[in-house]
Design a protein around this nucleic acid. Structure first.
Lengths: 214, 214
DNA sequence: GGTATAACTTTACGCTGTCAAGATTGGTCG
DNA sequence: CGACCAATCTTGACAGCGTAAAGTTATACC
């Protein structure tokens, strides 16, 4: 193994160029970022990767498998962002939890196409074989960040003791709902000031009060 | 005008059968209920209505317009359901608000395809002419039910005074988020008992506590 | 009653996902 | 070192999709 492309003159464009799997994923992600999941077609991905329209079938079972892989990648980026926000936030654990919620909403607004990609219907029931789908695993990691944050709030008694997951679920529902409603444009007609952070702050404060009290 | 179909022997199947617009909507809604929005194609709708594949173009500008009309219809059914739930619930206004939230989640779980139809991306920016899109109006009516419920809670002082819309938004975000997460299957791996009403109750109770305090 | 017009059909085009068959290559074993 | 094998990639084809253009038929109105 002296470099993945050692058998080619340049890095591209022979029968076996060695890294098509990754190139296809990158091309697909570009298309998502430019035009949303609707812009992702197997043929468009192949065109961008400068291969024939059937080449992707040697790396992905079908279009759904490609989209699934893209969703997993988006979830990974999302999880990293959330974790970064939690770790870099300061203040009380509850304040940091609020920052985490705001980061959740901000990610959705900053990366609407990736966010929608993560929540495409039908992503989670793949055939494969028995086990849970990869995207379920990826989303579970994102949820884990939230659960950890709840635990951090429970330790000094800011949130009641007990199984943290129900609390995390409530928090998740709230920020996720806000993010989705904002993306849907369902809130466009209302005089809520500063669509983004303002609303996130409002909602997470209400949520925080609900979580605190017994 | 002595009856819309007076010029036909039977009720169906001539060049002008008089009611194709409605028939197309019904066929489209059937397809949604059977296989989700993915199963809705202009040609499938036309087939089910037993007309040629281009006939729908005399009643809808394009596929997006048909889907938009279906979404409006779904929102109307949804709004009726919510209003019915609010009016038939008893107990304190806060308890009735909880019932409303549970009804929101239950509708999503009972009618997943219609619910997703209501929240398809891109539904809300139609060309038309200046004014807000019809689906925005339809969703605003659903939101109105929530706002009214919040107002009813404010009257006896169960929720602080002031503009009800921020409170309604928080409540909406919470139940909507839970509904979407459940539909996405994001919560499948967790030992939350009784996916439906249990979680809705849990979440709405936490939400209610957050709304009450100050 | 004849005619404009709306409703509907037919035909056609380019796009899509997917499959089957052929071409080309890199790696492995004799 | 050379021949083969299997993986990779291409080409060609098919059905289904959304949509536009052109042709057909029935209705409504003068």
């Amino acid at each position: 193994m002296t470099g993945a492309a050692s058998h080619h003159r340049t890095a591209a464009r022979r029968y076996h160029h060695g890294d098509l799997h990754r190139v296809l994923l990158e091309a697909g992600m570009e298309l998502v970022r430019e035009g949303g999941t609707e812009a992702v077609s197997l043929r468009a991905v192949a065109r961008r990767a400068e291969v024939s329209h059937a080449a992707p079938y040697h790396h992905f079972r079908d279009k759904a498998a490609l989209v699934e892989a893209l969703a997993v990648e988006a979830f990974r980026i999302f999880t990293r962002t959330l974790r970064g926000s939690w770790e870099s936030a300061d203040g009380s654990p509850l304040e940091r939890l609020g920052a985490l919620g705001t980061a959740y909403v901000r990610f959705a607004l900053d990366h609407p196409f990736e966010f929608r990609l993560m929540h495409l219907p039908g992503l989670r029931q793949m055939p494969a074989a028995g086990g849970a789908s990869p995207v379920s695993g990826a989303s579970a990691e994102a949820f884990g960040v939230l659960v950890d944050a709840i635990k951090a709030c429970q330790e000094p008694g800011l949130i009641p003791e007990g199984d943290p997951e129900p609390f995390a679920l409530t928090a998740w529902s709230t920020v996720h709902g806000l993010a989705v409603l904002l993306l849907d444009g369902l809130l466009d007609g209302y005089p809520f000031e500063a669509q983004g952070g303002e609303l996130a702050g409002l909602v997470t404060r209400t949520l925080g009060r609900g979580l605190m009290s017994r």
